[in-house]
Amino acid sequence: MTAAARLLRVPLSGVLLIGVLLIVSFASAKAEDYDPWPGLVQDIFNNRPMNDGAEVLAIEMPARAEDASLVPVTLRSKLSPADTRRIKTITLVIDKNPAPMAAKFTLGQDANVTAISTRVRVNSYTDVHAVAELSDGQLYVTKVYVKASGGCSAPAAKNPEEAQAHTGQLRYRQFTQASDGATSGAREAQVMVGHPNNSGLQMDQVTQLYIPAFFIDDLKLSQDGSLVLAMEGGISISEDPNIRFTYVPNGAKHFEAEAKDTQGHVFQHEWPVESSGS
């Protein structure tokens, strides 16, 4: 029996189902094949030329995320000490997230920041790009591919009352020295901000309504007033933003953090800089 004859023996409902499945499969394939990056270069970077950043910046993420709402990412400078250029900004783009620009980091001119780690939400299988702007005015890009889904709509870990009590708490940790061959005299530190960082895509499990977006959109870290690192954040930064970084101390006696969120709240704290970290 020919394929055409067999098809004629299929009930009409079966033919319709086959048609629907074919359409869905075709649409899924098209969505999987779609590459948003060229449009993001236009929207985020105004179509500026992109250079290969393999020798400038590394982006480290797991190939498959254990928890799509808490995916670790590390951005690491690969510039040699002899290179007279410096990294001015790093923009982290999660291509297929609802709001692709996850964060833009501005590095203090004299802080010599060589590594930044944080945690992000990843909503679907996607390329993740990191774009460094150097002091020569050029952009350099590198990328990784991450398998994860549903990170932007995953329920918050804390209930609303616990999250509210926790909001605005700032914690600071410093380490004795930086690891993995960083610049001589460099050290690592970590700043944690208590905040729900609601994405706007999460649903209240009681009311079944979407929780409005509410997140840290500005974070500045300084040593005695001299900028170490600033972050312009978005909905892709995970709940309770956590930034770990490597920098060179300038002899400051205090380390300061100032965080602002999308509702206009300002959270500030300062800590004494210890001679040896924990």
Rank of each mutant, 00 (worst) to 15 (best):
L57V: 01
L57Y: 10
L57D: 03
L57M: 07
A58E: 14
A58V: 07
A58N: 09
I59C: 06
I59D: 04
I59A: 04
E60K: 03
E60Y: 06
M61A: 08
M61L: 13
M61G: 03
M61E: 07
M61I: 02
P62W: 11
P62F: 13
A63G: 09
A63C: 08
R64E: 15
R64Q: 15
A65G: 13
A65T: 06
A65Q: 14
A65N: 13
A65F: 13
A65V: 06
E66M: 12
E66Q: 14
D67F: 09
D67M: 12
D67C: 08
A68Y: 07
S69D: 05
S69Y: 03
L70Y: 08
L70W: 09
L70V: 14
L70H: 10
L70Q: 10
V71H: 05
V71M: 12
V71R: 06
V71Q: 09
V71I: 11
P72L: 12
P72K: 08
P72N: 07
V73I: 08
T74S: 13
L75Q: 00
R76S: 07
R76A: 06
S77C: 09
S77T: 00
K78T: 11
K78D: 15
K78R: 07
K78L: 15
K78F: 12
L79P: 05
L79N: 02
S80L: 15
S80G: 13
S80W: 05
S80N: 09
S80A: 14
S80H: 07
A82V: 11
A82W: 04
D83L: 10
D83Y: 09
D83P: 06
D83S: 04
T84K: 14
R85M: 09
R85Y: 12
R86T: 06
R86E: 09
R86D: 08
I87W: 08
I87N: 00
I87A: 00
K88D: 12
K88N: 11
K88P: 02
K88V: 14
T89L: 02
T89M: 01
T89H: 02
I90S: 03
I90C: 03
I90P: 01
I90D: 02
I90W: 00
I90V: 06
T91L: 04
T91V: 07
T91K: 01
L92K: 01
